[in-house]
């Protein structure tokens, strides 16, 4: 096969916004993960190598003989992405190269099956940015619950019924677990806030050590909403306090995206089919809604999300940020 060699400097010059993931892939309309992955690769630039876990992102970007990636990219298995990335990093280090290694995984590949390899990679201090595209279930296999699936959400393996109100357990607090490895930088972000993703990716890219970014990615198919509503739903997850955007350095909280006007969780939940069973006349449904509101209230309290006054980088301010982002003076 003919291949052409692209100079990194040349790429940077010709494309101020380098796009590592191009259009033409096979993601669903309104896929939050596809948008987030594009934003991450734009911010990371061309001098990277990616290890990608099994999942939607891997499948929809690389149906042989096609590929939507313009950066070196490898998919090995579901549960070894942290280790493959670690091996790539060790090799590049020995070769004296500065190419940054990125690891991409979904919530299944990160919270569940790939958790051990991720922990090992963090503990050993590899210079890798691990990005978890969190769409809160095993979407690639047809919407089964993961340890990231939020409480009470319906999936094909946590269906509501006479005995159940969706998932019985809580969403795993992965960013805290990751931060407990005392790595230099761990953060959460959302595909609904592109400039926040860019800022956090650039920050992580500049750090020589393990960094972690969890990006909340609405999934129209799995969550049961229209593709055109993905960004709106992503924003509501943040504005309700259900998905707090935070930054942790060496395990300590160093930044949050404040919420200007917290919204009730029902604003977020009612738009999604996966919570449909909570909006019926049933005392258990009412209890679950209260439970979910309590989770949001707890997040707002522990991360101090409402005590910042109105700033341009809070949830409302960021909603107005134009493509490319505001520049601080």
């Amino acid at each position: 096969m003919e291949t052409t060699t692209i100079k990194i400097e040349e790429l940077r010059r010709s494309q101020p916004r380098f796009r590592g993931l191009t259009s033409g892939h096979r993601a669903c309309l309104g896929c939050g993960e596809a948008l987030a992955a594009r934003l991450v690769t734009e911010a990371a630039g061309p001098d990277v190598a990616v290890a990608n876990a099994t999942g939607c992102l891997e499948i929809f970007t690389t149906p042989w003989p096609e590929s939507a990636w313009r950066i070196p990219w490898i998919h090995s298995l579901f549960e070894n992405t942290g280790a493959v990335a670690a091996g790539m990093e060790a090799a590049l280090k020995m070769q004296g190269k500065s190419t940054k290694v990125l690891a991409f995984g979904g919530d299944g590949g990160t919270f569940d099956i790939g958790f051990q390899a991720l922990s090992g990679m963090l503990e050993r201090g590899h210079n890798v940015l691990y990005v978890c595209f969190d769409n809160e279930a095993y979407m690639n296999t047809g919407i089964q619950r993961s340890s990231s699936t939020p409480h009470a959400a319906m999936t094909t393996t946590s269906p509501p019924g006479k005995q159940r109100m969706g998932k019985r357990h809580l969403k795993k607090d992965i960013v805290s677990i990751v931060a407990a490895h005392h790595i230099p930088y761990a953060a959460t972000s959302s595909m609904a806030y592109p400039s926040d993703i860019r800022k956090k990716v650039r920050r992580a890219m500049a750090i020589d050590g393990p960094t972690f970014l969890q990006i909340h990615c609405p999934c129209p198919l799995g969550w049961g909403h229209d593709g055109s509503e993905s960004v709106e739903i992503g924003r509501l997850a943040v504005q309700t306090g259900l998905f707090p955007l935070i930054e942790l350095e060496r395990g300590g909280l160093v930044g949050v995206m404040p919420i200007r006007n917290p919204l009730p969780v029902t604003d977020y939940l009612k738009l999604q089919q996966r919570f449909k069973h909570l909006f019926v006349d049933d005392v258990r449904a009412k209890q679950e809604l209260e439970h979910i509101q309590a989770i949001a209230d707890h997040n707002i309290e522990v991360y101090d999300l409402t005590e910042h006054g109105a700033t341009y980088y809070d949830t409302d301010g960021m909603n107005l940020v134009k493509r490319g982002g505001l520049r601080r003076s």
Binding site: A83, M88, E89, A90, A91, G120
Partner: peptide, 27 residues
């Protein structure tokens, strides 16, 4: 002179070697 990666499982041992070989190093 080599990067000796003491991993947390055999699963990762093989995976690290895989990643290293793909990134251009004998492993």
């Amino acid at each position: 002179k080599c990067e000796f990666v003491s991993v947390e499982s055999e699963f990762s041992a093989a995976s690290v070697a895989l990643g290293a070989a793909m990134a251009g190093s004998r492993a």
